[in-house]
Design a protein around this nucleic acid. Structure first.
Lengths: 361, 361
DNA sequence: ATGAAAGCGCTAACAT
DNA sequence: ATGTTAGCGCTTTCAT
């Protein structure tokens, strides 16, 4: 691969100055048609492609937006299921790509993979005009510095109270309201009163909010509400969900009437475990998830859950970034709370027909 | 947003030269620990992030791989279905992102959106070390020029015969073999003999190969094989699939015994149309698709189809690019044919249990 | 181990 | 309408 042709090569071949070559690409109308053709022809012959780097450097903008997300590999998910599982990040990517396209931006994506001083964010941040970060992908302090320099929007983690990040734009979903409504449904519409919340060991703000929503519904209905989740799974995977279900079944006093899982993956794992044990769902125990992954409609019984609008989240992220880049850089930080949808399906006892209820925001 | 800090700012603040600042990031061990700390501290204070552009310009490499794909929006797919539909491109993106991550690259994605001399590819090509292109996303000639300068791998379109693109690396799936096996199954295992192929109006090499596979199976079994697809849909969408099914049913002589659709989207549309007309599937007519989108397992009856390994395609694309970038730039063009899987589900008459058969390559 | 200086390929004034 | 000329922020010899 010989060294790539530059503006100089094209200029020389077409007998104009490099400025004119540049103009042909940036502002074609400012060049006489005939000249333009000559330049374009030379460029074609040479296989010339403008260097995005040089451009970005000279014009201080890249036309690229970015997304950083954590390395969400679920080792327990085989390739087959994986197809259907389509995680969060995939949907956010889709949403962002769509919206970015509408605004003429390309999208740079990268999943965390820590290294020396060269962290992931830095790499992305250095190549884009602005970017979104999935919560807890990168250390708070790192974002702190970067965000002083270019637009950053935080996704899915709540704005951290009184901390340095509160000047970032921020988008989250109605975790609390969604989980509360789902729990209320279990209690009031299905008459269940012994509910167990399956959470996670790591302190995730999202899971935290869901648990609070769960508690709120319990209290409102006068149902016994534990101060802690019944189980804290090490990871939010199917395997852990299955483990949690087993643990709950073996507990003195037998299984609860409902397993309220903090995400769909765990709920699906629980479904499998219960089936293996011969526990009927929803007959003996109801199971619910949170997220709305496609897999939830493939399992039997179909999974009752709270659907997050991840695609929209991606779109909104881009809109926010574009707005900032469009001059609104000084405006106050925006905080969006996106509404969720409770999808009542079979696993809570609602029967095969899916019924949905919009909640929050 | 004030102007971002540069190496100069960091150098000044830490009392070293810009060369040292650069070294701290590129080659930390070549700098005394104490100096390094000082630089890093200054960088942190300033919120310094190295400019990817300047870097790329100076070092002639970006650490980014790219993907260009066509604007596959199916206007007939509502957001709901869309969730499940997860198109090709999404899976390829996933595959590429994973593999890219393993090799330390980020991924730049952009869907076509034609413009002046500044085409999509050019934009991507100018910002990456190498990239993949979904077939027919960009004009052949444009790729021609670019590919002389940096690695390009063509996805999913067959290598064009004797044309200028045959020096590109290329990955495709076993369209012919897959469709032939599926058709053979319909004929031999289900005893069907009047089959209609639902193709597309635009000349797609993939659809072409599928039709040829269909024909080959028909001929091999002594079944009447039309020279042309029974229907050529304008687009390969659900709406068009439904239209095709209706047209076929209204035809003199009644519907065929099987609708062999060139992709899953159309097959799903056909399923809907047939249900509306009260035609039983697979009782009255069998329906098959091609692709293996998740939606195919959600519809009733579940869709018999040929599953393409799109995720793997993305991964292989990255492997190829990385190999080229690693010095194999002069090697002969590689052409990969990935095996497919026939997924026998309910819509061909195989019953509710999914059975799969690996085919090709 | 560190510094000085020459680009990398382009854009954007400013001239003409 | 086109040419001249500075940089843009970094990497990279080559010195020291």
């Amino acid at each position: 691969m010989s060294t790539a042709p530059t503006v100089y090569d094209v200029a020389e071949r077409s007998g104009v100055s490099i400025a004119t070559v540049s103009r042909v690409y940036r502002n074609p109308d400012s060049v006489r048609a005939q000249t333009r053709e000559r330049v374009l022809a030379a460029a074609r012959d040479l296989g010339y492609v403008p260097s995005g780097n040089a451009r970005g450097l000279a014009s201080r903008s890249t036309g690229v937006l970015g997304l950083c997300f954590p390395d969400y590999a679920d080792p327990d998910t085989d390739a087959e299921d994986d197809d259907a599982a389509m995680l969060y990040s995939d949907q956010i990517i889709r949403g962002m790509e769509r919206a970015a396209r509408r605004h003429g931006y390309a999208l740079l994506i990268a999943a965390s993979l820590k290294g020396g001083p060269e962290s992931l964010v830095a790499k992305v941040a250095g190549r884009v005009d602005g970017f979104a970060v999935l919560a807890r992908t990168v250390p708070t302090e790192e974002l702190e510095g970067i965000s002083r320099r270019r637009p950053v929007v935080m996704l899915a983690g709540p704005r951290e109270e009184g901390d340095h990040l509160d000047h970032l734009d921020h988008i989250e979903v109605a975790n609390f309201d969604g989980q509360r409504e789902l729990t209320r449904h279990l209690i009031e519409d299905h008459g269940l009163r012994r509910l167990a919340f399956v959470g996670s060991a790591e302190e995730s703000p999202d899971v935290g909010a869901r648990f609070q929503g769960f508690l709120a519904a319990c209290r409102a209905a006068g149902v016994d509400a534990p101060e802690e989740p019944a189980v804290r799974a090490a990871m939010m995977t199917q395997a852990e969900g299955a483990r949690a279900a087993d643990a709950l079944c073996d507990r003195a006093g037998g299984p609860p009437q409902a397993l309220v899982c903090a995400n769909d993956q765990m709920a699906v794992g629980a479904l499998h475990a219960l089936e293996r044990r011969g526990v009927a769902v929803p007959g003996d125990v109801a199971v619910t998830g949170f997220d709305g992954i496609p897999l939830g409609r493939l399992v039997r019984p179909t999974l009752t859950t709270v659907r997050q609008p991840m695609l929209r989240m991606g779109e909104e992220a881009v809109e926010l970034l574009v707005r900032r880049l469009g001059g609104a850089s000084a405006a106050d930080p925006v905080s969006l709370m996106l509404p969720v949808t409770v999808a009542r399906r079979a696993s809570c006892g609602c029967g095969p027909e899916e019924r949905t209820v919009a909640i929050g925001a």
